[in-house]
Amino acid sequence: MFKKTLLASIFLVTTSVAGLAVPAYAQDATQAQIVQDYELTQANKALVTKAYQELFGNADLTALDRYWADEYIQHNPSMTDGREAVKSFLQGLGIDSWPTREVKFERVIAEGDLVMVQTAQPASGTSPGTVIADIFRVENGKIAEHWDVIQQIPADAINPRTMY
């Protein structure tokens, strides 16, 4: 009797602990849904990095027409909503004279419809180097919304580590 009770207790504890190890979303989601979510995340990540390279690395303003939604929402306080606002802003920064370059993504993190890229812009002329974290929301295969954090790289950092 003791062996049966002990085995039953071990079984109950094992199955209870095993149930805790499975993430909550996985308990309800089917394997197919998990795969579909993963594939969507990867597609959004590829879309954002390609769009970013074409716009900022290749200095190609027509990338906005290909990859940004008509009703694009901008959270940067220096800009208004819409693709035309981004075009005007970048033209004001002199994008037409930017050299083309391969964008070096320090980090690319994605989950579902959100993609975050971190890049470091080198110093040029009187402009200091900057580290930029851009967060994009993708909807229906287009960049629909954007947030960013831009921080100058100090010339006199207290520690020797990079900001990226």
Rank of each mutant, 00 (worst) to 15 (best):
W98R: 15
Q91A: 08
N58E: 13
T80S: 14
L114I: 03
P77V: 04
L90Y: 12
D96P: 03
Q53V: 07
I109P: 08
P99N: 12
A133M: 15
M116E: 11
S127A: 14
G125Q: 02
Y72C: 03
I135E: 06
E106A: 14
Q74D: 05
K104Q: 14
I109V: 15
F136Q: 09
F136E: 06
G57T: 00
E71Q: 11
Q91C: 09
S78W: 03
R66D: 11
M79D: 03
F56L: 15
Q91H: 11
A51H: 04
Q74I: 00
V117D: 00
M116F: 10
Q121W: 04
Q74S: 10
D81Q: 09
K50F: 00
I109L: 15
L93D: 05
V131I: 08
G112I: 06
P77R: 05
L114A: 07
G94S: 07
T100G: 04
G129E: 01
G92Y: 06
V115Y: 06
V117C: 00
V103C: 07
N76I: 02
G129S: 12
Q53L: 08
V103P: 08
I109Y: 02
K87S: 10
L61M: 10
G92R: 10
M116T: 15
R83K: 15
G129P: 00
E106D: 14
H75K: 07
K45A: 12
E102G: 07
T126K: 14
S97R: 13
E102N: 12
Y67L: 06
E71L: 03
A63H: 01
